[in-house]
């Protein structure tokens, strides 16, 4: 009984923190983050870029030269492909990494608050040689850039 009460209290505590964050304007209501620790399942289920953009709340994306994908042109090991994505677009709010030929395109979606540099580095798995898309939401609009990364050994199979 007691332990159950504790869990309930913890749960409400977490929600309260999230509520405060919304009140402070850190998260926009309506974004996936405002709905608790929600994870945007719809976006991670998408299989092409247009669907991903829609699932993230946009309508179409424009190609932009102000987004830079820094990654190896040829990745020897598809299980660990390093990516640095940076955006020079003003008011960059989100940076997402998509790999076209992965079973599900969206790899990661980063929210960039004010004061954080519009650039992230992470490592992703790639099943095979594919175009990689960096999708950036800046000032409410979506922009993208693509780059082909060749993979000599896939990272998704067994």
């Amino acid at each position: 009984m007691n332990s159950r009460r504790r869990q309930v209290l913890q749960g409400t505590g977490g929600m309260a923190v999230m509520g405060l964050a919304v009140a402070a304007g850190l998260f926009k209501p309506g974004s996936a983050w405002a709905q608790g620790a929600a994870w945007n399942k719809a976006a991670f289920d998408t299989r092409n870029m247009n669907d991903t953009v829609k699932a993230l709340g946009g309508a179409g994306a424009t190609e932009s030269k102000d987004i830079v994908i820094n990654s190896p042109d040829i990745a020897e090991n598809g299980a660990v492909v390093p990516f640095t994505i940076s955006s020079k677009l003003p008011k960059t709010q989100q940076i997402a990494l998509l790999v076209e030929k992965n079973p599900n395109m969206l790899v990661a979606n980063f929210s960039i608050p004010d004061g954080t540099e519009a650039g992230v580095t992470t490592r992703a798995k790639m099943g095979q040689t594919s175009n990689v898309v960096a999708l950036v939401k800046a000032d409410g609009k979506f922009y993208y850039t693509t780059k082909e990364v060749k993979v000599t050994l896939g990272g998704c199979g067994g």
């Binding site: 998260f27 299980a79 990661a108 979606n109 608050p113």
Partner: peptide, 13 residues
């Protein structure tokens, strides 16, 4: 203050 928030799929290494 949140300085970075991220949602990840299974394709992160």
């Amino acid at each position: 203050k949140v300085v970075l928030a991220a949602e990840w799929g299974p394709a992160v290494s």
